[in-house]
């Protein structure tokens, strides 16, 4: 269901066509924004729209789409008691701007998204794997990474077994 309330109007007035789409899904507002302007939109959301709390930052992989990743930012405003979801579409190999400067909590969340999806966050202070070992090859939450896939070379070398399955 398309969304066109005051909030979206303010966003659109400020950022124009950098706000690509807006809709609600199960009464939750979703805003698709230009990946290149993610930081300024984030700053605006935090400072002017009082979405001062980054609840979660994650990604979704749509391999068939032209820009395969959604980077999803879940925001919350203590003042308005309202949630807002920002999405930016990022293609394979493209960098996404890091929002660590806006919310410190994004640090680990972006590392996790990098770890799991291989999305490179530009401007991240310490972008390395967080849950998987540093030398691991592959990004497991991508759709083309099968559930039985593993970095066999790493497993063999470090665990001394043929397979972790």
């Amino acid at each position: 269901m398309p969304l066109d309330n005051d909030l979206v109007k303010r966003f659109k007035a400020r950022f124009g066509d950098k706000i690509h789409e807006a809709w609600t899904d199960r009464k939750q507002s979703i805003l698709v924004v230009n990946a290149a302007s993610l930081v300024e939109i984030s700053e605006y959301s935090r400072d002017d729209e009082s979405f001062d709390y980054l609840v979660d930052l994650t990604a979704v992989d749509w391999p068939k789409r032209e820009k395969r990743f959604d980077v999803v930012l879940n925001l919350y405003s203590f003042q308005k008691n309202e949630r807002l979801r920002l999405k930016a579409y990022v293609g394979e190999g493209e960098g996404c701007l890091s929002v660590t400067g806006v919310w410190s909590t994004a640090n680990w969340l972006e590392r996790e998204a990098y770890d799991m999806f291989g999305i490179v966050f530009e401007g991240h202070p310490n972008l390395k794997r967080i849950l998987l070992p540093d030398e691991w090859q592959g990004h497991p939450l991508r759709k083309d990474y099968d559930i039985l896939t593993q970095d066999t070379a790493w497993v063999r070398e470090n665990l001394g077994i043929e397979s972790g399955q």
Partner: peptide, 27 residues
Amino acid sequence: LGYYIVSDGTTQPYRVRIRPPSFINLE
């Protein structure tokens, strides 16, 4: 503790993201 679930209309979730409180508090 948050669950962000994306459905593609099938019987299996397309993506389940779990927002773990411990992970973010530990940061």
